[in-house]
Design a protein around this nucleic acid. Structure first.
Length: 575
DNA sequence: GAGTTTGAAACT
DNA sequence: CAGTTTCAAACTC
């Protein structure tokens, strides 16, 4: 006997009410959520999108399922007269023999990582049907995930389950009772906001959401999956009545969790090839060592850096962006950068632009630039020496410069090795991964006091002047000028909000880009370098990562390329 | 895998 | 509506 035959004419009032929630099923288009897991047996119309999802799976490829506009005849619950229970029961039989499009599941979840609550995840990857473990609820209360999702239990580990076709009557009654208690019981708990961020790589919707009711967490800090907001990868909102909430934008605890997950995901999936390439084989660690904490503190509110360039929040924001959801990450654990109840700030448009290789290239570029400056400086000194007929010291400087030039090619690999190490360390620092190498520590020493001084407001046009000035200055002055210019560059790395050309277009392949050849620097190349540095499109983001890398590399470059010019002077005590 | 913790749902 | 109990997932060991 068909269920419809038993209920069509005598549908209890409860059941009619049950249909009420179906009327509000259709969210406004701008509030559409990605489809949830496609249940095998969709029983409730729409609130959970399950039926829609089943239909969506039949769509043409590429169509955004959650924006799919159903033909009217396929959504009877949207129209008057209100259909009775029989209507949707018969139209949506419990067992839908519909092919389900299986998308690749990026993250292999542990059995316990599945959502606990009836929430919409931003992960659009269809998941396996939930498998509940109910014992006392007969799977007829919202305690039961399956019931809450509007689907039959199938392959669950539940005991005395009544959420199946054999107990349809009891189930319908339970649905009615539940709806009587809460008409929105089967609706998604997470309401998306009008904003919608889209993963640039996979056009994945990262829907910004807000819990309709809000959570009421007391002990979890809203940073465990006990919290519905956290589990849905959304920030707590003004709807929440939680205590000691740490699930808000800017929360360091939340960020720490994010980083942990980020690293784990990338290790597991091996999708951080570029980073690994730079970092080396040491891999990632999840804990923050005291040393790294110290590094972090270097950029906290105490330092001059922060006072003049970055706030700690900016640093953390940069780290946040560095770990911005890549395609793989967003599949598994999306802490959206855009879901801010405070400012509604947007995710950096540069978030996907900068890659470790870019930083590496930047470092190489700065090394070259320093070499250019060093050489020019030496040549200038040589001219001055000739004019003033100064002594042997100056001649030796020129000789050193020439020697430097001649041996540049030989030294390049060594230099690059150091730079690579510095870059690796920089990446590592930003990721809290491994301690600094001794080389980098050496490069970084004493910099905090020395690098952020003087007028740092030089714009691009003054760069050449600064370089020119450096020609007539001693080592310290030259370092100061270059570092000041570097500071300007890096300052904008952090603050610039847009980029017009992908960095990769600017920092081309070191092998093919003439800028990276080992040939002696020419005026043309030098000008090109300066131009490159001044080009706003050159600037990248994930500020502190680049900052660290470039700084370490430049420091090294200065030491290697310039200091030798004065070694004779130093050894002869002429300074 | 067993026991504990947690917070939503259910109940009073 | 507030307080309590029940429940099952999340978590810990």
């Amino acid at each position: 006997m068909e269920p419809s035959e038993t209920t069509s004419d005598s549908a209890p009032r409860k059941l009619v009410r049950q249909l009420d929630f179906t009327l509000v099923y259709e969210d406004p288009p701008h509030l559409k959520l990605p489809p949830p897991s496609p249940p095998q047996h969709s029983l409730l119309p729409p609130p959970s999108h399950s039926l829609l999802q089943l239909q969506l799976n039949l769509q043409s490829p590429g169509q955004r399922p959650w924006l799919y506009s159903e033909p009217q005849e396929q959504q009877p619950w949207l129209h008057s007269p209100r259909p009775k229970l029989v209507s949707w029961v018969s139209r949506f039989p419990p067992v839908q023999k519909v092919p389900v499009k299986v998308l690749p599941v990026v993250k292999s979840d542990s059995p316990r990582s599945k959502p606990r609550f009836n929430v919409e995840s931003k992960d659009t990857t269809p998941k396996k049907q939930k498998q509940c473990n109910c014992k006392n609820s007969r799977c007829l209360k919202l305690y039961c995930e399956c019931f809450a999702a509007g689907i039959y239990c199938d392959g669950c580990n539940c005991v005395n389950c009544h959420n199946n076709v054999d107990n349809e009557a009891a189930r319908q009654e339970a649905v009615g009772i539940t709806l009587e208690r809460n008409p929105n019981a089967f609706r998604p708990k997470i309401a998306s906001s009008p904003q919608e961020q889209r993963n640039s790589k996979e056009s994945e919707a990262l829907v910004i959401g807000k819990h309709n009711k809000g959570c009421h967490c007391k002990k979890s800090g809203c940073l465990k999956k006990y919290c519905e907001c956290f589990q849905a990868n959304i920030l707590c909102s003004e709807n929440c009545k939680c205590m000691d909430c740490k699930n808000f934008e800017g929360s360091t605890e939340r960020r720490a969790i994010f980083h942990r997950e980020y690293n784990q995901v990338h290790i597991k999936q091996g999708t951080s090839a570029a980073v690994t390439e730079v970092v080396g084989s040491s891999g990632y660690r999840n804990h923050i060592t005291p040393k790294r904490r110290k590094i972090q503190e270097m950029f906290s509110g105490r330092s001059t850096v922060d006072q003049t360039v970055n706030t700690n929040a900016q640093y953390l924001q940069a780290i946040d962006r560095m770990a911005s959801p890549s395609s793989s990450l967003s599949d598994s654990f999306v802490f959206d950068q855009v879901n801010s109840r405070i400012s509604g700030s947007s995710r950096s448009v540069l978030a996907d632009v900068l890659q470790p290789q870019n930083v590496k290239n930047l470092c190489s570029l700065l090394v070259i630039l320093s070499r250019v400056a060093a050489k020019t400086n030496a040549e200038t000194r040589e001219k001055i020496d000739r004019k003033t007929e100064a002594g042997n010291f100056k001649a030796s400087v020129a000789s050193s410069a020439k020697s430097l030039q001649e041996t540049k090619d030989v030294r390049q690999p060594v230099c690059d090795d150091h730079v690579n190490k510095a870059v690796a360390d920089a990446v590592d620092i930003a990721n809290y991964n491994r301690p600094l190498s001794p080389e980098t520590l050496a490069l970084m020493c004493d910099e905090q006091d020395n690098m952020f001084f003087g007028n740092t407001s030089a714009d691009g046009a003054s760069h050449q002047n600064m370089i020119q000035k450096s020609l007539n200055s001693d080592y310290g002055e030259q370092e100061r000028l270059i570092m000041t210019k570097l500071l300007d560059v890096l300052r904008e790395l952090v603050t610039l909000g847009s980029i017009k050309v992908p960095l990769t277009d600017k920092l081309a392949n070191p092998v093919t880009d003439p800028l990276y050849t080992n040939s002696p620097p020419t005026r043309e190349r030098e000008e090109k370098l300066v131009e490159l540095l001044e080009d706003e499109n050159f600037y990248l983001n994930r500020g502190m990562l680049a900052w660290f890398a470039a700084f370490a590399a430049t420091r090294y470059a200065l030491v290697v390329s310039i200091k030798p010019l004065f070694e004779d002077k130093i050894t002869s005590n002429e300074i």
